[in-house]
Design a protein around this nucleic acid. Sequence first.
DNA 1: TATTGTTATACTCTATAACTATA
DNA 2: TATAGTTATAGAGTATAACAATA
Lengths: 162, 162
Amino acid sequence: MDGKVRVQTIKDEPSANPSDLESFVGYNLKRAYVIVQNDFRAILGEDGLAPRVFSALSLAVQYPNITQSALARRLGIERSGLVAIVDTLERLGYLRRALVPGDRRVQALVPTDAGKQTYARALNLVRAHEDRLFADFSATEKDTLLNLLLKIRAKEDERPRS
Amino acid sequence: MDGKVRVQTIKDEPSANPSDLESFVGYNLKRAYVIVQNDFRAILGEDGLAPRVFSALSLAVQYPNITQSALARRLGIERSGLVAIVDTLERLGYLRRALVPGDRRVQALVPTDAGKQTYARALNLVRAHEDRLFADFSATEKDTLLNLLLKIRAKEDERPRS
DNA sequence: TATTGTTATACTCTATAACTATA
DNA sequence: TATAGTTATAGAGTATAACAATA
């Protein structure tokens, strides 16, 4: 061989050959999550609600008077991390921090009318985003996927975060 | 009602009531991904390979002489972001940047013996991590999950990143 | 002592834009 | 003109540790 034969294979991209990575759930979860998240952001717009802000608003609207600690627990994040999210939602006028009679440590999150309306609109957008993105999934496939993901989520309790 | 009845519901955590979020694939993907990733890090150890470093090493070992651009494309990240990862792997002595005769812009990634051995060990750890984490999944369930995630990943081409 | 909300801080991951050297 | 690697930079997202107020 005089260098002419091998040079080509150096730059070729191996695409048929499946790598070890493709067999891992973790790797595929990550890649799939990035795709869905990017589509979420693209559809909700540049200045739209970020996924985690949407999630927090969702729970605040559905469970009015939820405390920040309870909301953080629900979202699976630290309560310190929720402060900025609630700040954002309060600054946008979508909820208020309200005093709770009986426990002055706590601040209940109360969605405003604007918050409820914005959430209703965003919810429709997010539903449309997932409907479009999973248009080629049968109802059974989507259901199976959700159930398998829930089965993974059930493991959260097994290995406590702290 | 004299305030005694309602106060209790303020602090209660609603757990039976499923929120809108639970029905979204994106939200469940994220939550599931975090659980798997945390377990990955816990098992590979504090100073072990981070997921993305493991992934890069995996492809470098399996496709020796792959270029950085090709590797970044495979991993779905920008090539600027790969620099730090390759720096790490080179610093650890797991691969070398090698000149390619014929195109002096390119640097082929060549795994060292230490890199190959470390990868072999890490691969076993990662397999053990997933085997343990998905011990309660049947072969069919795991296969179904992987196929559904791949079906999502197939959408990456539809909506180009740039 | 324990909990709630908060701040300060740092770290990881990632993207964009611009540069250089090559092609 | 286009591509490969690089740097600088900034922005999310998150965690840990500590603190004040309150229980």
